[in-house]
Amino acid sequence: MFDLLPAQLPWWVVGPGLGLLVAGLFLVNNQPLGASGAYVQTSGLIRRRPDTAVWRVWYFAGMFLGGLVVTQVLRDNAGGDVRSGYDALTGTFSMPVVVIIIFVGATLLGYGAAVAGGCTSGHGLCGISQRSPASLTMTATFVTTAVVVSLTMRAVFGGAL
């Protein structure tokens, strides 16, 4: 709507901002900023589980809301900056294939986060910031795996990848 933000904020704004947010949430209620945990609680609320931590559902809604404010209000999308979210992928494969890749990948994300006990935010940001060896191990493992898989995909399929 308004053109208040550049297309992409520099990493030295986003990263330290996230760092302050992580420390800030610990200062308020001693909790890590975990996104997969928010999914688990939201799923629990939908299925009316009695042990749901409702504040994490508000956190889930907040992530969507914050994204909405930045992408739809603060950033000007009129100039053709709206993207599919998957430009390189849709430029390489047909849509049904893209949907399958995303769905399989996302299911692995959910399952892997459940097995490991956290995701990029919980282990990657908050866990390492707490100096937890388990989080460092999990993060080093998923980053290395993802680099290997991505380079392999580029080598095999080429295209826009």
Binding site: A35, S36, A38, Y39, M63, G85, Y86, L89, I101, I102, V104, G105, A106, T107, L108, L109, G110, Y111, G112, A113, A114, V115, A116, G117, C119, T120, S121, H123, A134, S135, T137, M138, T139, A140, T141, F142, V143, T144, T145, A146, V147, V149, S150, M153
Partner: peptide
């Protein structure tokens, strides 16, 4: 389980190009 979960999550991250948040 941190390593097993990490490998699965890593494959998912590369394929889906996104993560939960």
């Amino acid at each position: 389980h941190h390593v097993v979960g990490g490998v699965l999550f890593g494959v998912g991250w590369a394929l889906a190009g996104t993560c939960p948040a």
